[in-house]
């Protein structure tokens, strides 16, 4: 199934040319288009009635009713629904059709309508449509079967597009959130005139190190800070790759003429680092950020005196 495999490249959304392949795959042919066109007059005749029945059905269930809050929305949806229904038998299944079906999934995802409701509503829809095919005096048995089969294919294609769009939209939300989390989890803040602090939470993988290093270097230059505290309290374990990332960062900071103090070195981390044989003897390390700040203030020849009078800043 070449179409389904292509999902990884296209991030779940079906490119239009892939949809052509999909049509070929389900053997949706010119004959099917012709069969659906034969259904069009019937569709025109019943469209308003179907839409009314469909919304009556939706309004009678609390699960679906909550999406149909006010009269205005309802009327707009009914019009859209009618157009959607008539499109099914329009005979034109090109790019415009493709885009309108994708949009259905995207819009539904945005308003939080679960695919479950979309699918079951479609099932109800079919129950309205099928009797008008087989009970139709204009169609002989063969024509009715051809129309049914064509309708089945196009609805399957419709549903696939909508579901792919659903997945794609959800996927986009996830990737946006993970970017946000990444940004949030590597803040670089100035905590004293001349001292910036960067608490690292979680794991330092190569992607994050790059981002973290950029932000740290920028902040050091921006604030003209001679000392940077990199706090690893929130790093669950440090392996050689993470240690290498840290050392790279420290070396880059050195090139700017500033110095890094690693703080928040927990006893378990200290032990594993020694076992791993990682040499951090050239680097100033402290068990807590408070201890690191003290070292930083000493380096800047800043003395903080205790209370009663005033706390002396820089």
């Amino acid at each position: 199934m070449p179409y389904i495999n292509s999902h990884s490249n296209s991030r779940y959304i079906s490119a239009f040319d892939k949809w052509q392949e999909q049509k070929d795959f389900v053997k949706f042919t010119k004959d099917d288009e012709e069969a659906l066109k034969k259904m069009h007059p019937t569709a025109m005749k019943y469209a308003d009635d179907f839409v009314e029945k469909l919304y009556e059905h939706l309004m009678s269930h609390p699960d679906t009713k909550r999406f149909l809050s006010d009269e205005k929305t309802l009327n707009r949806l009914k019009l859209a629904q009618k157009a959607y229904f008539l499109d099914l038998t329009s005979g034109d299944y090109g790019e415009e059709y493709f885009n309108s079906r994708l949009k259905v999934g995207i819009v539904h995802q945005r308003i939080g309508l679960p695919p479950r409701i979309y699918m079951t509503t479609y099932c109800y829809y079919m129950q309205l449509i099928i009797p008008t095919i087989y009970g139709n005096p204009d169609f002989d048995a063969e024509t009715a079967n051809a129309i049914f089969m064509a309708l089945y294919k196009i609805i399957n294609l419709d549903q696939e597009l909508a579901i792919s769009a659903y997945i794609h939209a959800t996927d986009e939300v996830i990737s946006r959130q993970s970017e946000e989390i990444m940004e949030m989890s590597t803040p670089v803040i100035q905590i004293w005139d001349g001292v910036v602090a960067a608490p690292i939470i979680g794991t330092l993988d190569s992607g994050r190190t790059q981002q973290f290093m950029e932000r740290l270097l920028e902040k050091i230059v921006e604030t003209n800070s001679p000392v940077a505290l990199v706090d690893i309290t929130g790093v669950p374990q440090i392996d050689t790759a993470t240690a290498q990332h840290l050392i790279d960062t420290i070396n880059a900071v050195k090139l700017l003429g500033s110095q890094v103090i690693i703080t928040g070195v927990r006893p378990v981390i200290a032990q594993t680092l020694v076992h791993l044989g990682i040499d951090l003897t050239d680097i100033i390390t402290r068990p807590s950020m408070a201890a690191g700040l003290k070292v930083a203030l000493d380096k800047l020849s800043i003395k903080v005196t205790d209370m009663s009078k005033t706390t002396q800043g820089s």
Binding site: P236, Q237, I238, D239, T240, A241, T242, P267, V268, I269, Q271, T272, H275, L276
Partner: peptide
């Protein structure tokens, strides 16, 4: 214990 867990997890990471 926590120390051993950290050792094991670090080895897994490597």
């Amino acid at each position: 214990g926590m120390t051993d867990v950290t050792r094991i997890v670090t080895a897994v990471s490597e």
